[in-house]
Every structure is written in structure tokens, then in C-alpha cells.
Nucleic acid binder design. Structure first.
Lengths: 232, 232
DNA sequence: CGCGAGTTTGAGGCTGTTCAAAGAGGGTGG
DNA sequence: CCACCCTCTTTGAACAGCCTCAAACTCGCG
């Protein structure tokens, strides 16, 4: 396996305080891997022997409940680390990350995690901030699910997608990976039927433009208003 | 301010790999504080200049939404750290921790956080695991809110309370702090009315015993069955 | 061109909310 | 020590939002 050039990851905030030498040492034990559309990086329940960094593309992390229902726990964006189950004192992965776009990941054996964290305090602090932010996002989502009705939750979810995966395109902002109504439903805790109805209504109002596994947001401000709840 | 004896915290997993000397150094910059029932340790939105460890008692962390709705983000149990907003790159507190029982906390100025984390890799690893577990709990809760109906969510919440704050008592297990129907509602994303109805039904079945701000679980296994969804 | 996956739309029903009001526990002050 | 009051709790009734079930439609790929 060829070495990974440090220029690929140098810009990531996670590594921004490491010296070149430290970074190279880190990359020495890493390997790269391509993940095709719809392919899973690993499966929920599998023994956690690696942790990962998403270099390019987009992943959705799903969990399946005992009775077969699925939800999307979060999206993984370029630069995010994921699958660091060992840092959470688990030895299996709690979810399944599936590529929603052609993706490239870097992976390390879990053994090196503790090593790197203990040897690079900066990395530890950065990693903790990353997890901390993720915790905050989770709390935000809990709050939304507890207090908001479906339309507002969907509005929030779409706005988040715009921020994290929005790409300006002529008439609006395109979500730049394949996303189905079902996906949005699993992100907001509702059914694809309800999502479809909501998006249809929004399309009629000129807020968005739909399509098969596609979503284009035309009026971010309008969505913002819906999300804030000052609706109508 | 008198020194804090290290025996008070020595047993906590968070510190279990620190030497006595390291621990003493840590405690040197700490102060202790009593928090009475219903009193807040700090307020949501306040500038985050300290972080805390709950030594004794019980706290509920609430968030208030823009439109005045309140939810309980989590409970803080003895040995938990909380209010480490700086580790999350925030400079204000995202929630308000209120004492649900007479409590005692230890607090440090936030400045020392980075210092200690960088100087004590063990502490960093432990802290990360703590946050990681919290993240997992949050994901569990998201999944429950997305896929389960209210009765199951309440069952899960009560079982969690039994685990974290259960005290065997004659005919069952007592939740050992003051908890209202409203609290349970805010933990599960429903209304106090619905919680009251559910608990009344459970009481009729002999699963629990209610009371003003009190809860006694008589049949954990029965609740477990409800929580798993094999109901009826 | 046909098939399958994803989407749209309708109708009906159920769970849980909202609104309303009455009932109990416990602490406090007289 | 008792009465009162405040807060928490219980319960009912009506409504509504969303889900479930069902069926048709359409886009894009093989």
C-alpha cells in the first residue's frame, strides 16, 4: 500500500496543530479505501478493529432497531472522523456508514488510537472538541424531536443539509449527494409519505425543487422562517 | 477555601489513573460548593468560566427553547463531569443544571481544563470516553424518540432512572430524588398529562407505585417487556 | 421498452395533544 | 396543631396531526 501524502489531510482542523513529522507518523499506519455508492464502510455490530476519516464524499450512518426500523443517526462529511468506537469503550460498531456518494476514507487500526491520543495532546483536545460538537448536535436534535412538529423538523434538517452539503447551482442550492424522501424521513423521525407531502407543499410555494433522490433549495430564508416556527 | 481531600474523588473512574500528586495538583485549583434543592449551578446562556464535577446529589440539565418550551437534556449523577462547555468550543453554557436533590459539586476555572488535558493523557482519554458514552446515550434517545411510541419511551426512561438512581426499598426500587410527572414528560418528549395517564395505568397493573414527586418501581421485568415492545 | 425503485396522493383511523376542571399532598404560617 | 394554599396530579372530552394502508404514477436503468 502506497503512503498517503500528508497534503491530503494537512488542512483538516483535526490535525492543524500537528507537526509534519507527527502527521507522517500518524499516516504511516493508515490505509486508504474507496467506497462506492450504496456500499457500507462497515456494518453495525461488527467488531470495531479500525477507525476512519472521511476524505472525500458523503456517508450516512444508520442504526437498525431490534424490530427492523431504521434511522439515520448522522451524516458524515469530508474531514469528519467516524467509527472510533474504541474511544467510546465499545468493541463493536453502533451503526452502519453507507456511501451516499462516491467516497474515499482513510482508516487506522484501533490499537493506534490510544497511542496517538496519549502522544499528541493537541489531537486529543481536537478529537474531544469534535465529539463534543457532535454531542451538541445530538442534543439539538433531541430537543427538536421533543418540541417541534414534523414540518419544522424537516425544515431544520434540510437547512442543516444546505449548510453541510450545499452547492450553489443556478437557481438555488443543491444538496450534493443522493438523498431520498426516505432518508429525510429517517433523519427526522417521520415517514416518507409525510416528507413527500411536505416537500410537495414547499415546491408549490417555490421554496424547493424536488426530483428523484435530488433536492434543490430555492429559498433558504423561507425555510428558515418555517424552521423558527413563525409560520403563516 | 479549605483544600479538598483527594479521598473524596479517588474512587471515580475519571481519575483512576492519576497519581496522588497529579490528583492533588488538580484539586488545588478546585473549590467545593453546596447546591440546594431546586437551585441552579449555573444558567443557560451564561458565560462558561468554570466546569464541574458532581460529588453528591442529583442534577437535571434543562434547555429552554426560544418559544419557552423546556426539555431535560440529561440527568447528572455523582461522579459525572458537566458544564465543560469550553471543551466543546463554546463560551456559554448550553443548558441549566438544577438540583433535584441536595447536591455538592466541585468546580474549576475553565482555564485549567486545557492544561490538565494536555498534561494528563489518561485524563484526556477518560474524559473522551465519558463524552463518547454521553454521545451514545444521546443517539439512543434520538432513536427512541424517532421510532417508539410514548409508553415505550417512558418505560425506557424509567428503567434508565432505576439503573442510575435506583435504591432498593422494601417493596421495590425507589428513584432516589424528587421527580415529577412533568420531569418525566420533559425527558421523553411528551406532556405531563400523558405521563400521568401512563403511570396510572401501570399502577393499576402493579408495575409501579406513584406519589407526589416520587416513583417506586415494583416490577422491573414487567417494564422491560413494555420497553422492548413485546407488549400485550 | 419494460421493470423496479422511488415518489405522489388519497382516505381513514389512532395516538397523543390540548383544553378544562377537579382532586390530593405537603409545607407554612397563624 | 390545624387550616390554608400552592403545586403537583388525575381524569375527562374533543380535536388534530401524523401514520397506516392502498394504489397509481414516473423516472431512469438495464
Amino acid at each position: 500500500m502506497a503512503d498517503i501524502d500528508r497534503s491530503l489531510v494537512r488542512a483538516l482542523p483535526l490535525f492543524n496543530k500537528l507537526s509534519d513529522a507527527e502527521l507522517d507518523r500518524l499516516l504511516a499506519s493508515a490505509t486508504m479505501r474507496r467506497v462506492g455508492m450504496g456500499e457500507a464502510v462497515f456494518e453495525q455490530g461488527q467488531k470495531a478493529d479500525r477507525f476512519f476519516l472521511l476524505l472525500h464524499g458523503r456517508l450516512k450512518v444508520t442504526q437498525v432497531t431490534a424490530d427492523g426500523q431504521q434511522i439515520i443517526v448522522r451524516m458524515v462529511h469530508p474531514g469528519d472522523i467516524f467509527g472510533f468506537a474504541k474511544a467510546l469503550q465499545r468493541d463493536d460498531y453502533p451503526g452502519t456508514p453507507t456511501a451516499s456518494a462516491e467516497s474515499v476514507v482513510i482508516c487506522w487500526p484501533t490499537e493506534v488510537w490510544g497511542l496517538f491520543v496519549e502522544q499528541n495532546p493537541h489531537l486529543a483536545v481536537n478529537a474531544m472538541q469534535t465529539i463534543g460538537q457532535r454531542l451538541q448536535e445530538a442534543h439539538t436534535r433531541i430537543r427538536e424531536m421533543a418540541t417541534e412538529e414534523v414540518e419544522r423538523r424537516v425544515a431544520h434538517a434540510v437547512l442543516r443539509l444546505v449548510e453541510q452539503a450545499g452547492k450553489t447551482e443556478g437557481t438555488g442550492i443543491r444538496i450534493d449527494f443522493q438523498i431520498s424522501r426516505q432518508d429525510i424521513a429517517e433523519m427526522t423521525g417521520t415517514t416518507l409519505h409525510t416528507v413527500s407531502r411536505i416537500l410537495s407543499a414547499w415546491e408549490a410555494k417555490g421554496l424547493v425543487e424536488g426530483g428523484r433522490q435530488k433536492l434543490l433549495v430555492r429559498d433558504t430564508a423561507g425555510l428558515q422562517i418555517l424552521a423558527e416556527g413563525q409560520a403563516d
